[in-house]
């Protein structure tokens, strides 16, 4: 079991609490999306899950193990990879090196450059640009690279922070298709998104985060039909 479960999480910066009391279940092999306005605490939750920000209270369990106090290195070694907000490609590493560094935590079992083939198959654009610096890629290419880099760690769980942010509509579609495709391979996915309509399409369950608390949650189809979600997040009246 590699389900990810968060219970009564509280976290923040200094004395300011950004997450007050957040509980969330991500069942193994499913896509769960987390919606919410800017500043609701979505990225803070990703930072907590990836080990960058310590919890103030509450707990995080991965397949039954408590991972609340682990640092990012231990978390990625347990199969949880992050595609951070803003992609955070290493600008002065080549595309190839950016992918390779995703495998850093399992470097002892790394079998060489042919391990990159699956990423190049999934994102042929990256193969064309393999020797270019990461910083010279377009936003969409960088997003693919960020996803490819996370996959290089061979994760069982993937945390995606706003993968569609700043992308052209056609690329947004590609990104969501990629997520659906990844989900079919059995990876557990937490998808943080502002693009609620597309996120609810690929997700099985959804949560709505509002000022540090979960205000709504349920099956994705039910959320899509929920008037509160329609009004605030889907732009429907």
């Amino acid at each position: 079991m590699t389900s990810l479960s968060i219970q009564n999480a509280a976290a923040g910066y200094g004395h300011t609490l950004v997450l007050r009391d957040v509980s969330l279940e991500i069942p193994e092999g499913e896509v769960v999306c987390l919606l919410g306005a800017n500043g609701a605490g979505k990225t803070t939750l990703i930072r907590v899950l990836s080990g960058l920000l310590p919890l103030k209270s509450g707990s995080i369990k991965l397949g039954g193990d408590d991972i609340s106090r682990l640092d990012p290195i231990s978390i990625v070694s347990r199969g949880v990879a992050t595609v951070p907000e803003g992609r955070r490609i290493f600008p002065d590493l080549t595309v190839r090196e950016n992918l390779q560094i995703g495998a850093y935590h399992r470097r002892r079992s790394y079998a060489g450059t042919n391990e990159l083939d699956f990423a190049f198959e999934m994102f042929p654009r990256l193969k064309e640009r393999a020797d270019q610096m990461g910083g010279t890629l377009s936003g969409g290419e960088q997003q693919m690279l960020a996803i490819g880099r996370a996959l290089m760690s061979k994760p069982k769980t993937l945390l995606l922070d706003e993968p569609s942010m700043g992308l052209a509509p056609i690329l947004i579609q590609t990104v969501f298709e990629t997520i659906a495709q990844l989900s079919r391979t059995g990876i557990t996915i937490l998808l943080v998104e502002q693009n609620a309509a597309a996120a609810l399409d690929v997700a099985s369950h959804g949560y709505v985060l509002d000022r540090g608390e979960i205000s709504l949650h349920g099956r994705a189809d039910d959320l899509k039909a929920d008037p509160r979600v329609q009004e605030s997040y889907l732009g429907l009246a």
């Binding site: 080990g51 960058l52 290493f90 850093y104 935590h105």
Partner: peptide
């Protein structure tokens, strides 16, 4: 080398390097 790659990654973005499992 992995060590050299990690050195370069950390000099560009220490936080994201940690997400990759780099100390």
């Amino acid at each position: 080398t992995w060590t050299g790659l990690a050195l370069r990654a950390v000099s560009q973005d220490p936080t994201t390097s940690r997400l990759m499992g780099i100390d």
